[in-house]
Amino acid sequence: MNQQHSSGTATRTLPFYSVLFHVKYEHLLAGVSGGVASTLVLHPLELLKIRFAVNDGHLKSRPQYKGLVHAVSTILKEEGARGLYRGVTPNCWGAGTAWGFYFFLYNAIKAWMLEGTSKTNLGPGRHMLAAAEAGILTLAITNPVWVVKTRMCLQYANLETLSPSKRYSGMIDALVKIYRYEGFRGFYKGFIPGVFGVSHGALQFMAYEEMKKLYINHYNLIPDAKLGVLEYLTFAAASKLFAASTTYPYQVIRARLQDQHKEYNGVVDVLKKTWRFEGTRGFYKGLLPSLLRVTPATAITFVVYENVSRFLLHKK
Rank of each mutant, 00 (worst) to 15 (best):
V176D: 06
N158V: 06
L214M: 07
N217F: 04
F196S: 11
K212N: 00
M152R: 00
L233S: 00
R185Y: 09
L162R: 07
G183T: 01
Y208S: 10
H218W: 05
F191C: 14
L159V: 04
L214K: 05
L175M: 14
E160A: 11
I178H: 03
G190R: 12
G190A: 11
F205W: 07
G186C: 08
G197H: 09
F205Q: 11
I222K: 08
E209K: 05
G190E: 14
A207P: 02
M206Y: 03
S169H: 04
A225P: 00
M211T: 08
L159T: 12
K213A: 04
Y156G: 09
K189I: 08
F191S: 13
S163Q: 00
N220G: 04
R180A: 07
M206F: 06
Y156D: 14
Y215T: 04
Y181A: 02
E231R: 02
A225S: 12
L230F: 05
L203P: 01
H200R: 12
P164Y: 02
P164C: 03
E182N: 09
I178L: 10
M211W: 04
L230S: 12
N158S: 14
Y188F: 14
R185M: 08
G228V: 06
I178T: 09
F205T: 10
G186M: 13
T161R: 13
R167T: 13
Y188A: 13
A157F: 06
S165R: 04
A207H: 07
Y208M: 11
Y168H: 07
V176N: 04
Y168M: 06
Y188N: 13
L203I: 15
L214Q: 05
V198R: 08
V229F: 13
Y156W: 10
K189R: 15
Y219H: 14
Y219T: 10
L227F: 02
K212S: 03
I216F: 03
H200K: 10
S199T: 15
L221K: 06
G186V: 11
H200E: 13
Y208D: 10
F187Q: 03
Y181C: 00
L154N: 03
K166S: 11
L203F: 11
S165D: 10
G183D: 03
L214R: 06
R185L: 09
L175P: 01
Y219V: 09
Y208A: 13
S169M: 03
N158W: 03
C153R: 01
G190S: 13
G183A: 05
V229S: 08
G183P: 01
Y219C: 05
I178A: 11
T161C: 09
K213P: 00
H218Y: 14
A202I: 10
M171W: 08
S163N: 04
Q155R: 00
S199N: 12
Y232D: 00
H200F: 13
K189S: 14
A174Y: 02
L221M: 08
E210C: 07
L233A: 01
Y232H: 06
G190C: 12
A202Q: 10
G170Q: 05
A225W: 00
L230C: 12
V198A: 15
Y168T: 08
F191D: 13
P193N: 14
G170S: 05
D224Q: 07
Q204W: 11
A174K: 01
N220E: 06
A225D: 01
G197F: 13
H218E: 07
L214S: 11
C153Q: 14
E231A: 01
